[in-house]
Amino acid sequence: MKDSLLTVVRSLIFVAFALVLCALVFQFAGYNAPTMLWAVADGAFLRSGAIEQSLRWALPLFITAVGVGISFRAGFFNIGAQGQFYVGAICAAFAAEAFKGGPAFLVIPALIIAGMLGGALWALWPGLLRLRSGTDEVITTLMGNFMAGLLLVYVTSGPLKDPSGSGQQASSRPLDAAYRISDSLGLSPTIIGIAVAVGILMWLLVNRTAFGVLASLAGRNGTMVEWQGARLWKLGLSSFVISGALAGLAGTIEFMGPNGRIASGFLPAHGFTAILIALVANLNVVGTAAAAVFFGGLASAALYLPIMAGLPAAAIDIINAAIALFITARSKLVDKVLRLGGRPS
């Protein structure tokens, strides 16, 4: 257990580094850095109602990030969470049209399943390409994001277009209130329940099943598990599909919960933030929950900054980018310092 504690401490150190770097950037840009960081903390967690706002962002991010973690553990770099998130939302929206008028207790689960299938489908084809012909999944999933983004533009201005809509952003017809799983604030027992269930199930899958152990071995050394008789495609493809289904679930939650409709280009950074969360948490499910709350806080602060502190919302992008930088460049040095005086090697 020492190792997982170490991981948490290490991630916190990286985040601290990133915040210091951001403070320097803000200072040089002419803002007062301490005020700025305080405003971020205030907007994320301190002011009244901030925690609820942060959780609204954290829960869908958590669900997507857990999925990303599952595929990364198995050695498949699915960076297409954004596209899977969109396709999940789109499929749920189509299902909502199809099942219109049905009883809520049937329609709501049906929409959720449709959304998960959509996300899974958007992960399935890059997974198959990788396993059948060795196509790099980083490229295909990345391309898949753009394709899904364009698909979203098409459906919101075509088949699902809301004729009464008049904004700059094309969007779908609103979901019947009976099928909504939260109000526009986006925090409801249903959503919390879904997130908790996902967390528990995925924790069990990773830590308490043969699949979890073998997928982790396969992610670190695929050759070794092949010599043990494992079929890599089974481990890899199922990890891929699970991660897609969870991203699709998050998209469905955004559609059925706070948004109540899908709009072209909505939440364009969701999938990438989720990848960042998974990496900060070192692909650990419990760590992902903690990291999701942190990044949920940042997302919520981004809305608050311009109004309350007169700062650009892009400040949050800078913080995200700085954290990404430090996490991907995780250094041996920090590991060494952490292990000083630790157990014998």
């Binding site: 069990l204 099943t209 043969a210 699949f211 152990v213 073998l214 070794m224 598990v225 481990l235 199922s238």
Partner: peptide, 12 residues
């Protein structure tokens, strides 16, 4: 790894 592969992948 060898023993785990002999059962179902979802074996607890």
């Amino acid at each position: 790894a060898r023993e785990l592969l002999q059962g179902s992948l979802l074996k607890v």
